[in-house]
Amino acid sequence: MPYDDAGGASGPASGAAVRRARTALLATGLATALVVLAVLATSVGAYDIPVGDVVGSLRHRAGLGGSALDRVGESVLWNVRLPRVVLALLVGASLGCAGALMQGVFGNPLAEPGVIGISSGAAVGAVGSIALGLDFLGNWTVTACAFAAGLVTVTLVYALSRSDGRTEVVTLILTGIAVNAFAGALIGLSVFFADNAQLTQITFWQLGSLAQATWPKVLAVLPCAAAGLLLAPLFARRIDLLALGERPAHHLGVDVERLRLAVVLLVALLTAAAVAVAGVVTFVGLLVPHVLRMAAGPGHRFLIPGSALGGALVLVAADLTARTVAQPAELPLGVLTALVGSPFFFWLLRRTRRRQGGWA
Results as ranks from 00 to 15, higher is better:
R353E: 15
L199G: 13
G165K: 12
V284Q: 11
L266Q: 03
G133N: 07
V105S: 04
S43W: 03
A146P: 07
R237D: 12
F136E: 13
P113S: 12
L90C: 02
T321H: 13
R166F: 13
G253N: 09
V80E: 06
T271K: 03
G357M: 07
V254F: 14
A197V: 11
P289T: 00
M1D: 15
G285V: 09
L229G: 00
P248M: 10
A123G: 15
G150I: 02
R237T: 06
L286Q: 07
L77W: 11
V80Q: 01
V76F: 05
P305Y: 06
T321F: 15
G15N: 13
R20M: 00
V80G: 00
Y47P: 05
R20N: 05
A123T: 09
V127W: 07
G297S: 09
F346C: 09
R84L: 07
A236C: 04
D319W: 04
A123P: 01
A16K: 05
A24H: 05
L252S: 10
L315N: 02
L186V: 05
G11E: 08
W215P: 03
F345Q: 08
Q103R: 08
V18Q: 06
L210Y: 07
T203I: 14
V105G: 10
G125S: 04
G73I: 05
L270E: 06
I239A: 09
P298R: 06
L82T: 12
L320W: 15
S14F: 11
V325P: 03
T153D: 10
L134H: 15
G96P: 13
A93R: 02
L259V: 10
A278V: 06
I118Y: 08
E246K: 09
L37I: 06
T200C: 08
G253A: 05
G188V: 03
V152Q: 13
A272S: 12
L266K: 02
L331A: 14
S94R: 05
V316W: 00
A122H: 01
A68D: 10
V218F: 10
A123E: 09
L69C: 09
V39K: 02
R20T: 00
G357P: 06
P298H: 11
V142N: 08
T324A: 12
L261M: 11
A24M: 03
A123S: 14
D53C: 10
V169T: 15
V284S: 08
V340F: 15
R20A: 07
A146R: 00
V267T: 12
F136R: 01
R323H: 15
L151H: 02
L231N: 04
A33C: 14
A126H: 02
A62Y: 02
R301C: 00
T352L: 01
R258A: 11
F235T: 14
G15R: 13
N180T: 02
I173F: 01
T337V: 07
S190V: 01
A322S: 12
W347M: 13
L110V: 08
R260E: 06
A68T: 09
R81A: 10
G92V: 03
G107C: 06
L77Q: 11
A38N: 05
A24C: 03
A226G: 12
L242G: 12
A33S: 15
R258C: 04
S67L: 14
G310M: 00
A38K: 07
A197E: 15
G341Y: 08
M102A: 03
V91D: 01
A268T: 03
A243N: 08
L303E: 00
